[in-house]
Amino acid sequence: MSFSPCPDPVPGNAESVDAIETLIVPRAVDLGGMEVRRALPSTKRQMVGPFIFFDQMGPAEFLTDQGIDVRPHPHINLATVTYLFDGEIRHRDSLGTDIAIQPGAVNWMMAGRGIVHSERTSEDRRQNGQKLFGIQTWVALPEDAEERDPAFKHHGVSDLPIISDHGVEARLIAGEWMGASSPLQTASETLYADVQLQSGRSAPIDANFEERALYTIGGNIEIAGQSFGPNQLLVLRPGDPITVKATEDARFMLFGGSPMGGPRYIWWNFVSSRAERIAQAKEEWRQGRFTTVPGDEDDFIPLPENSGKPRRATGGVVYP
């Protein structure tokens, strides 16, 4: 699909240009009862560190008997990371995993050579309706990890470290930051944190990671004299530490890490360093050769037809 043009940092503001390498305003798409804002991949940027896909889900409010129903679908050569601010999603996959993810917890699903999963609202949640708000990202895997056996790991809200320091409160999802270390084991150097700042407070973003970005969730932040509101992806210029200041209570996702050794191809739900691997996965899904999801075997998302060849990650993504 195509993406809306993304504005550059403010012309004439040298400090802003020095601090922000790329600014991306995601395009909002209505997926039927829930708005999704897709920040990566973009025409402006392929990846930030290993992050190749970044979706904001909601905020949405479902009435009684409503919810999400993402039918079983496949992934290869990537890891999905689901993180919620509000609501609940029931995850089931072809490994036999059946678990509800709730706010502050994290689901890490490594597709490796191939996995199938579904994401739905549970029957209990449908009875009373619910809100849903969160982030789903895809992380590209190093080439030597792309074809590993699939795996799933859940870390509950109490498993992830909380950083609390002078008006800064952050939950560290992956990697190391401000002296804390997450238990989540990733396939490459990865940083991922949910950061909340009280008005007037600041958080340092050091230069330990080669590629870093912020995605603004709420409130207003200031970097090098430039102000940014919600729903913007700010790719930080590498090499220099920066400071993020909240001009009102604010929340953002901090993410990044080491870049992949080369570009990735992306088509529908498939990511790989090799276009021919995606072609193979397409044929395997078409022929029903992926393993099914226990308890969810009778439903699936068909392979999109006439949606083009795999492209390098510059925006050629098909919504499921």
Rank of each mutant, 00 (worst) to 15 (best):
L31Y: 02
D18Q: 06
L234D: 14
R125T: 01
E143D: 05
K44V: 14
W138A: 06
R126E: 03
Q127E: 10
E283T: 15
A187P: 00
D206E: 01
Y192L: 15
M110T: 13
E176F: 01
F252D: 08
P183R: 00
G58K: 02
S307R: 12
G229D: 05
R274C: 11
A19K: 01
R38F: 02
S199K: 15
Q102N: 13
I162G: 15
T22G: 05
Q287W: 04
D249Y: 00
W177C: 04
T64W: 04
A187L: 06
G200K: 02
K245V: 03
G179H: 02
V81W: 03
R120T: 05
W285K: 14
E210T: 14
N220Y: 03
I52M: 07
I101G: 07
P304Y: 01
P150T: 10
R277C: 13
I242M: 04
L132V: 06
E210Y: 07
V70G: 03
G262P: 07
T247D: 06
A174I: 09
D98G: 13
G87W: 04
A100M: 13
F300V: 02
I89P: 03
I221H: 03
K282A: 15
M253G: 03
A170N: 13
S188H: 03
M260V: 09
D249S: 14
G129E: 10
A207C: 05
N220M: 07
L84I: 14
D165H: 12
R289V: 08
N13Y: 01
A105G: 15
V157I: 15
R71L: 08
G129V: 12
H75S: 06
W285T: 14
L214W: 01
D299I: 04
F62C: 05
A203R: 00
Q127T: 07
P241Y: 06
S272V: 10
G33N: 07
G308P: 09
G104R: 01
R171I: 10
R289K: 14
V17M: 11
